[in-house]
Measured scan of single mutants.
Amino acid sequence: VTVHVNRYTYHFDNPEEAEKFAREMAKRLNMTVEIHGNTLKVE
């Protein structure tokens, strides 16, 4: 599972951890999480 935050890319083996990380980053940056299959984008 890949998480994109701005120009950074993070890889996770565990989808739940990836989503938790993405949501935490989105909250911190006041952004939203978009899910595209195995890719989560924080925008």
Results as ranks from 00 to 15, higher is better:
residue 17 E to Q: 09
residue 29 L to C: 12
residue 16 E to R: 10
residue 32 T to M: 11
residue 41 K to T: 14
residue 31 M to W: 05
residue 29 L to V: 03
residue 39 T to S: 10
residue 32 T to F: 08
residue 24 E to G: 05
residue 34 E to L: 15
residue 36 H to Q: 11
residue 3 V to A: 01
residue 16 E to I: 12
residue 9 T to S: 09
residue 16 E to V: 13
residue 36 H to L: 12
residue 32 T to G: 05
residue 15 P to R: 15
residue 20 K to W: 09
residue 22 A to G: 02
residue 5 V to E: 02
residue 21 F to D: 00
residue 12 F to D: 00
residue 34 E to V: 15
residue 43 E to Q: 15
residue 37 G to R: 04
residue 16 E to G: 08
residue 19 E to A: 09
residue 34 E to Q: 15
residue 7 R to Q: 13
residue 19 E to W: 15
residue 17 E to C: 07
residue 34 E to C: 08
residue 28 R to H: 09
residue 15 P to S: 11
residue 16 E to N: 08
residue 1 V to L: 08
residue 30 N to P: 01
residue 40 L to F: 11
residue 23 R to Y: 14
residue 10 Y to T: 02
residue 10 Y to E: 01
residue 19 E to L: 15
residue 31 M to P: 01
residue 15 P to E: 07
residue 24 E to S: 06
residue 9 T to P: 05
residue 20 K to R: 13
residue 16 E to D: 12
residue 40 L to H: 04
residue 23 R to F: 12
residue 23 R to Q: 11
residue 19 E to N: 07
residue 25 M to H: 04
residue 27 K to N: 13
residue 39 T to H: 12
residue 15 P to Y: 15
residue 28 R to F: 10
residue 3 V to N: 02
residue 30 N to L: 03
residue 3 V to Q: 01
residue 28 R to S: 07
residue 31 M to E: 03
residue 8 Y to I: 13
residue 11 H to G: 02
residue 17 E to T: 09
residue 33 V to K: 00
residue 30 N to Y: 04
residue 22 A to F: 03
residue 22 A to E: 01
residue 41 K to W: 15
residue 15 P to C: 11
residue 11 H to M: 08
residue 20 K to Q: 12
residue 9 T to R: 07
residue 20 K to L: 12
residue 26 A to V: 02
residue 9 T to A: 09
residue 39 T to Q: 10
residue 16 E to A: 12
residue 26 A to G: 04
residue 41 K to Q: 07
residue 7 R to N: 14
residue 2 T to Q: 08
residue 13 D to N: 10
residue 13 D to I: 09
residue 43 E to I: 15
residue 18 A to K: 00
residue 14 N to M: 06
residue 33 V to R: 00
residue 8 Y to C: 14
residue 14 N to F: 07
residue 29 L to K: 02
residue 35 I to D: 04
residue 15 P to F: 15
residue 36 H to N: 13
residue 1 V to C: 08
residue 20 K to F: 08
residue 39 T to D: 10
residue 32 T to D: 05
residue 10 Y to D: 00
residue 12 F to P: 00
residue 8 Y to S: 09
residue 32 T to Y: 08
residue 5 V to T: 04
residue 34 E to A: 14
residue 37 G to M: 05
residue 3 V to F: 00
residue 39 T to I: 14
residue 42 V to Q: 03
residue 43 E to G: 15
residue 43 E to K: 14
residue 9 T to L: 10
residue 42 V to N: 03
residue 19 E to F: 15
residue 2 T to A: 07
residue 36 H to W: 10
residue 11 H to V: 10
residue 7 R to G: 15
residue 36 H to T: 09
residue 12 F to M: 01
residue 30 N to K: 04
residue 33 V to N: 01
residue 42 V to D: 03
residue 24 E to A: 10
residue 38 N to F: 04
residue 6 N to V: 07
residue 43 E to W: 13
residue 30 N to H: 11
residue 19 E to I: 14
residue 40 L to W: 11
residue 36 H to R: 10
residue 40 L to M: 13
residue 34 E to H: 15
residue 4 H to M: 13
residue 42 V to F: 04
residue 18 A to W: 01
residue 35 I to L: 07
residue 28 R to C: 10
residue 33 V to C: 04
residue 30 N to M: 05
residue 20 K to E: 13
residue 35 I to S: 07
residue 28 R to T: 08
residue 18 A to Q: 00
residue 16 E to W: 12
residue 20 K to V: 12
residue 42 V to Y: 03
residue 9 T to G: 03
residue 28 R to G: 05
residue 18 A to D: 00
residue 38 N to W: 03
residue 25 M to W: 13
residue 33 V to T: 02
residue 16 E to F: 11
residue 43 E to V: 15
residue 32 T to L: 09
residue 30 N to C: 07
residue 19 E to G: 05
residue 17 E to Y: 06
residue 19 E to D: 07
residue 42 V to T: 04
